[in-house]
Amino acid sequence: MIKVENVIKNYGSVEALKGVSFEVEKGQLYGLIGPDGSGKTSLFRILTSLLIPTGGKASVKGFDTVKDYKSIRKIVGYMPEHFSLYMDLTVEENLQFFATVFNTTVEENYHLIEDIYKMLEPFKDRRAGALSGGMKQKLALSCALIHKPDVLLLDEPTTGVDPVSRKEFWDMLRKLKDTGLTTLVSTPFMDDAELCDEVALIQNGNILTIDTPANVAAKYPHKLWKVETENNYKTLKALDNFEEKISAFSFGHSVHLATNDNVPEKAIREHLLKSNIKVDKIEPIKASIEDVFMELMR
């Protein structure tokens, strides 16, 4: 449904995309996972025909993003990172506006947005500018869906959104997937990746890896330990001179320590005790997408 082949985008001397390739199949919920500045937005703008790539090519549903730009614009629903809504129109007016622009009516495709829009209906006469962040995001998604697109392109829909609204948003995306919609979504939150069918990790204009979330996590090459102590900061300092350490990073109230396969738990425990650190728990764990991302970045 989406095909990106060796796409390059330069802005003057800045290389935003350095030859990116991936494919999204029909019906997939596909995640583009990476921090700000990794090239995600440039890629979305190329796919929506708003930007011409410096090199390579891309297509959506067989339409070339440069040659067939008019066709592309009819079949994609696009939610840019910064809200695309008209702040001085009401909730209802925004929705009607987007339906009209695409030559359709709200009634015709209401079934597509019913679940999401129901939550907004009590506020349908409120100006979009006066909605909370979570509400704006639901309205923007409704507006991107109202013309029944074949492909939904969502650029960082959950940035700046609190954990509860973020969870609700992903529940909506899973439901939309069940209707057969193809979705490409970008996010800087590594834990969002686990909710996608397939993910591409992106950093500095390069794809680091592409696979299912479970396979990406399984690619982690070292033995990984979760170390819980009284204090992460002291623990990380103490691990600086632990010879068996490959890497150590804070994860909430614990530290994830990577070592070679043959290192026993006892060695870690004794090293920390030597530095006068009280150890609560040390246990082997499976790597998360975030562990893999940091390993690939190193």
Partner: peptide
Amino acid sequence: TSGVDPITRR
């Protein structure tokens, strides 16, 4: 740290 990569965040 909104939008920052995981290593920089740490």
